[in-house]
């Protein structure tokens, strides 16, 4: 298990390096640079600025310098926001995105497992039919539509009661977090519900469940320890990609709900070709996701003893 963990971590580092390099190359292949947007009065100023940011050096040298700084944990200074270090931007805004994302993942996973198990137990009966209809909606309607509609709903709700029950946008309190994280997790939850349902259906009459019944165990124990625990395994394997999907989906939801997360900076930076911010946010997100996927795999190994041996 220890060797497996170390191996996965090394693979993770290589993945992150690859992400950084690919981003660096892609970014520099786009026409223009961070200074193109500035109204530079003459070539001299431009040359000065280029020298200051090191943009006059050969590309490979820039790459080496950048990678060197990055391994020391220094993502540099933003080109477009005066005197703002990329590290500070991440430190200030990532916790917001992470909170939103984690809430959404928890909501998607718990909801998916719960609804999936429920629909399997009530197979082809009313709860199953209703939930599976909603699941199809959840999978096919994009999150920015759901986000807009939910805001509309919140406005009407608040208007109806004459007080603000749930805030329509913004960030700060737990109340602000509920609706955006629900919206963000919805698609993934629908997807996980479907996965959990089919996995549960496979297990509901498995031989070992029959054995558990023949032992006279109470139904709740059979459900929790024998059915759920095994049916959950496929859900856990897709949790890594699901986290990635939710995190990237977060950019849109942050914009719609005016949430001061990292997503907004990322989009802005790409538009303005703010090299350091693009690199910093991409590499940071990449590393975060790679780490989460490894974590999910390790948790999987903990729950399913069969993979622990590898």
């Amino acid at each position: 298990m220890f060797r497996y963990t170390v191996k996965r971590l090394i693979q993770g580092v290589i993945t992150v390096w690859f992400i950084a390099t690919a981003t660096f190359i892609a970014m520099h292949s786009v026409p223009g640079d961070p200074l193109s947007g500035e109204r530079l009065t003459n070539e001299e100023i431009r040359a000065n600025l280029e020298a200051r940011y090191g943009l006059d050096r050969p590309l490979f040298e820039q790459y080496l310098i950048y990678m060197g700084n990055m391994t020391r944990g220094d993502f540099g200074i933003s080109f477009t926001q005066q005197n703002r270090r990329v590290n500070d931007i991440i430190r200030e805004h990532f916790p917001v995105s992470a909170t939103l994302g984690i809430l959404a993942v928890v909501f998607a996973a718990l909801g998916g497992i719960l609804w999936g198990a429920l629909t399997a137990l009530f197979r082809n009966r009313l709860p199953d039919v209703v939930i599976m209809f909603l699941v199809i909606l959840g999978i096919s309607v994009p999150s920015f539509v759901v986000a807009g509609l939910s805001q509309l709903g919140l406005t009407s709700l608040n208007a109806l009661f004459g007080v603000s029950i749930l805030p329509v946008a913004g960030w700060g309190t737990l109340l602000h977090m509920i609706v955006p994280s629900l919206v963000l997790g919805l698609g993934t939850m629908a997807f996980l519900t479907r996965l959990m349902r089919s996995s549960m259906l496979e297990i509901i009459n498995a031989d070992f469940v029959r054995t558990a019944r023949s032992k006279g165990l109470p139904p709740t124990r059979i459900f929790l320890k024998h059915q759920l625990r095994n049916a959950i395994l496929p859900v856990i394997t897709v949790l890594g990609p699901a986290i990635a999907a939710i995190t990237t989906g977060g950019f849109v939801v942050e914009l719609v709900f005016a949430i001061p997360g990292l997503g907004r900076y990322f989009v802005q930076a790409v538009q303005q070709l703010d090299y350091t911010v693009i690199m910093g946010t991409t590499v940071f997100y990449g590393a975060f996701l790679v780490f989460m996927v490894i974590l999910v795999d390790l948790v999987y190994g903990f729950i399913d003893p069969r993979v622990r041996l590898e």
């Binding site: 498995a206 070992f208 054995t211 023949s214 024998h226 095994n230 069969r306």
Partner: peptide
């Protein structure tokens, strides 16, 4: 009443 089954490999919970 206790019971045992035909295929031992699938008759036990793989995660316990």
């Amino acid at each position: 009443i206790g019971m045992i089954f035909q295929d031992p490999m699938s008759s036990m919970n793989p995660t316990m």
